[in-house]
């Protein structure tokens, strides 16, 4: 059997223990496109959610990704610098964009 990978690059995924015994949520290694800005995405986004949460939004416009990053900062309090926010937006639009600005 393939060994299940636990823990991700930044933080371990939540470990679950139930009264009936220990159970753990598997870590899923998503296939992610490599490219400029990848490290910044890794450092800023994975603290709160998986790559799956990003790629399963579907291909989106630049404006969509820009608003998403802004939402993470404004609504969810993620400490992302202005510079990093721009880098993340560029990465997301390049690799998970629909080619449209709006």
């Amino acid at each position: 059997m393939k060994k299940i990978l636990f823990g991700s690059l930044i933080v371990a995924s939540s470990l679950f223990a139930q009264v009936k015994g220990d159970i753990e949520v598997p870590y899923i290694p998503y296939e992610i496109k490599m490219g400029k800005g990848f490290d910044t995405v890794q450092a800023n986004c994975l603290m709160c959610h998986s790559f799956g949460y990003i790629i399963n939004q579907g291909p989106q416009s630049r404006e969509f990704w820009k608003e998403k990053v802004e939402k993470m900062i404004k609504a969810f309090g993620a400490p992302i610098t202005k510079e990093d926010a721009k880098t993340v937006e560029e990465y997301l639009f390049k690799h998970y964009g629909n080619g449209k600005e709006k």
Binding site: S8, S13, S14, V25, P26, Y27, I28, H49, S50, G52, Y53, N56
Partner: peptide, 9 residues
């Protein structure tokens, strides 16, 4: 069908 492990979806 699995969308995300953290949080689980």
């Amino acid at each position: 069908i699995t969308y995300s492990d953290r949080p689980p979806l």
